[in-house]
Design a binder for these strands. Sequence first.
DNA 1: TGATTAATAGGAATCATTACTACTTAAACT
DNA 2: AGTTTAAGTAGTAATGATTCCTATTAATCA
Lengths: 127, 127
Amino acid sequence: MRKSKQRDAILQVLQGTDSHPTAEWIFSRVRREIPNISLGTVYRNLNQLADGHLIQRIFDDGHLRFDANLHRHDHFRCIHCQRILDLEVELVGLDEAISDDDRFNATGYSLEVTGVCNECQHETEEI
Amino acid sequence: MRKSKQRDAILQVLQGTDSHPTAEWIFSRVRREIPNISLGTVYRNLNQLADGHLIQRIFDDGHLRFDANLHRHDHFRCIHCQRILDLEVELVGLDEAISDDDRFNATGYSLEVTGVCNECQHETEEI
DNA sequence: TGATTAATAGGAATCATTACTACTTAAACT
DNA sequence: AGTTTAAGTAGTAATGATTCCTATTAATCA
Ligand SMILES: [Mn+2]
Ligand SMILES: [Mn+2]
Ligand SMILES: [Zn+2]
Ligand SMILES: [Zn+2]
């Protein structure tokens, strides 16, 4: 993997946020630095970075989002605004339960908690 | 919601499998009964059934799948063949951890375990 | 510095899903 | 039972996120 200013910029943008953005959002940010970068380049590099374990992909309700936080952690997703928050929960006994199941060989897991974030909760109350 | 033979057939197909199928798979099955049903009808009805809580939607790696099992349960997904298996794991302490977090009001959660299913494991060994 | 070839920009293609519309039919009302 | 109504359907067009294609640019290295 050669270096390219496009990939560097994409990685920097992602590392500079905790918002779990879409490719489109990253595209709009990177454009400030590299105005003629193309959306295809953003997708290609995000996939390369994910394949090279420099970032991770997360699937939120059918849409692709990205996360530069490589530690194993989980997420909360607001069903109103789709905002994603990091979650640190300890899943007691899960590793054991998984390895006891002889139908498969597990390599990972992800937990998604859903609900309403505080911002959306307040909006609803105001109406 | 009026009754329609199309919706009845779709629900029956889904209730008759534990494979967590896609709309396309359900379409091909229902076609045996109703040869001129359209794919749009399958999607529309699956969405209605899900909105009416008669089935549930599950998101597997960016694709939409459906499940007639309404009990809260989790899933294993094979990263090779995309097969989905039902999982019954008890997430000890999760409810508490979630309600202690004051950034949101959680209403649900889902756990996806990933790995290689036995069938795919054997295939790999044979090569 | 020149050769090699990965990476890019821009645009076309893909594919799952949704939207549109004229026709059909369930079911509520006489 | 016949009439009215609006929900449901088939068929097809549209959408939108993502991937693919190709001529051109640029990183790397002898
Ligand atoms: Mn995260
Ligand atoms: Mn299931
Ligand atoms: Zn929210
Ligand atoms: Zn498998």
